[in-house]
């Protein structure tokens, strides 16, 4: 059986993703750009759902919308007045950048259209859609199960390396964002007790 996503859902989600992405890169108020980013990420999560990779759709919502966007919104609130129009957001050469991006897009689309991919018929790893019974939830479990086995069988070392990377990034973020101790502020970093 060849996998066949719903075309209407795909085009709706594609319009949502590109529209919100345009708002992210052109919004004058930074806070609105952050909210549009939420729309883009939800659209991509919907596309994962359309591809029936439910686990990744959940991870997308949890990690991107739940953590990264909140972090960015906190950064906006810490550095900006939230609703100030930030009109000078674009650099001095937007047309050069637009031309370069259009050329990149042309190269990418040309490469995509001129390639033939060895797509194979669908396997039973993923849940299947049948018009009679709707989603077969019982078959969604092997997808996540297979993913877990895949993470622990050939990808054990990258999996552990990613956990070390996240720990290092956490410590680095603390070290960078922490206020450096100044010489005229002896309370910072001095722990000796005067009797």
């Amino acid at each position: 059986m060849i996998f066949d996503p719903n075309p209407v859902a795909f085009w709706l989600l594609a319009a949502m993703v590109t529209g919100c992405a345009l708002a992210v890169i052109r919004a004058h108020k930074l806070y609105h750009a952050g909210l549009a980013l939420v729309g883009t990420l939800f659209g991509v999560a919907g596309l994962y759902g359309l591809l029936q990779v439910w686990f990744l759709a959940g991870v997308q919502v949890l990690v991107y919308v739940g953590a990264i966007v909140i972090l960015l919104l906190f950064a906006i609130m810490l550095t900006h007045h939230m609703m100030t129009p930030n009109l000078k957001t674009l650099s001095t050469q937007p047309w050069t950048a637009a031309a370069m991006c259009l050329m990149l897009l042309a190269v990418l689309l040309g490469g995509i259209l001129s390639s033939t991919w060895q797509t194979a018929p669908d396997t039973t790893v993923y849940p299947t859609w049948t018009s009679q019974s709707g989603f077969q939830v019982a078959e969604a479990i092997p997808s996540v199960k297979a993913l877990g086995f895949r993470l622990l069988d050939p990808f054990t070392l990258p999996f552990e390396m990613v956990s070390v990377l996240i720990l290092v990034a956490m410590i680095a973020a603390l070290a960078v964002a922490r206020k450096p101790p100044t010489p005229e502020d002896p309370a910072e970093g001095c722990e000796e007790v005067v009797p």
């Binding site: 890169i25 883009t40 991006c101 990149l104």
Partner: peptide, 20 residues
């Protein structure tokens, strides 16, 4: 989507917008 993001990275002057 990649080209839109690249355009944003190239043209935005605000650091948080570049991160987005």
């Amino acid at each position: 989507l990649f080209c839109l993001g690249a355009y944003g990275v190239l043209t935005r002057r605000n650091a948080i917008a570049v991160l987005m």
